[in-house]
């Protein structure tokens, strides 16, 4: 069929009309989506009190055991007054909270709530006291300067998270997690809130634009496979040494056995 069409070599008169229609649908759709976005934004503003109330219910059902009924903190969990929406979005949005058990540090788990519920919780906690907000999209979409981000990452982050974001060990069984599949929003929120034992990097230490650069670099590392081939976990010389002993020398020893075995 295709071949036949090509042989005629002429565009159907309706093609232009179809193209126009498609174009209109796309631009219209995009416009609709955009305006829907803005209206959605407006909706959150207007319905924020409702969101907060929903969040409060969720909080009291799921978090109050450790953090107290009004998030004032207990012996089992810190006060959440003033930690901001960013902290909640990070802790709950990565599954670290609610915690499964007390341990050296909260582990990443499958997320317990829907995105909407996470937002409700976040805005409830944010309503208790001023704190860092969830960052806007332009800061976390990876549109910054990767080179500047890489330099900042090496100075501020690599000693715990490894230069390639592969993670690393801390004291007494704690560890800095790998950043290889963490979303930009969560990286940003971690920097501003300092979850677990991570220090806080406020906007006067690393400016929002610098944070965007750091996320851009991490996105670059996530999106671009290593030019040299498989990365062996980006763990550096330990992985390389184990590889050459087990697979390199292992394969070669198998070959020596073949070379010296009597041919059959």
């Amino acid at each position: 069929m295709n071949r036949q069409k090509r042989r005629t070599g002429r565009r159907h008169p309706l093609a232009t009309v179809a193209l126009l229609a498609i174009g209109l649908v796309f631009t219209g759709g995009a416009y609709a989506a955009l305006s829907a976005g803005t209206t959605a934004q407006a909706e959150t503003d207007t319905t924020s009190q409702q969101t907060i109330d929903e969040g409060k219910k969720l909080f009291q059902a799921n978090c109050a055991t450790c953090h107290g009924l009004s998030a004032q903190g207990t012996d089992n969990g810190p006060s959440l007054i003033g930690v901001g929406a960013a902290a909640v979005d990070f802790q709950v949005g990565t599954g670290r909270m609610p915690m499964q058990m007390q341990g050296p540090q909260a582990q990443e788990k499958p997320v317990q709530f829907t995105d909407e519920q996470v937002k409700q919780l976040a805005y409830y906690v944010a309503s208790l006291g001023p704190g860092p907000d969830i960052p806007s999209d332009h800061l976390v979409n990876g549109g910054g300067d990767a080179a500047s981000g890489a330099e900042l990452f090496r100075i501020n982050c690599a000693m715990c998270h490894n230069v390639a974001g592969a993670g690393g060990a801390l004291t007494e069984g704690k560890f800095a997690p790998p950043l290889t599949d963490v979303s930009g929003v969560h990286i940003y929120e971690a920097m501003v809130t300092g979850p677990q034992n991570m220090p806080v990097f406020n906007d006067l230490n690393i400016s929002p634009e610098d944070k965007r650069d750091i996320i851009t670099y991490l996105k670059y590392v996530q999106d671009n496979a290593s030019p040299g081939g498989f990365e062996l976990g980006s763990l550096g010389p330990v992985a390389e040494g184990l590889f050459i002993w087990i697979f390199g020398l292992g394969a070669i020893v198998a070959i020596t056995v073949w070379i010296t075995a009597k041919s059959n």
Partner: peptide, 9 residues
Amino acid sequence: VSAGTQPDW
């Protein structure tokens, strides 16, 4: 410095 700073094997 990077976490996991090691020399070659």
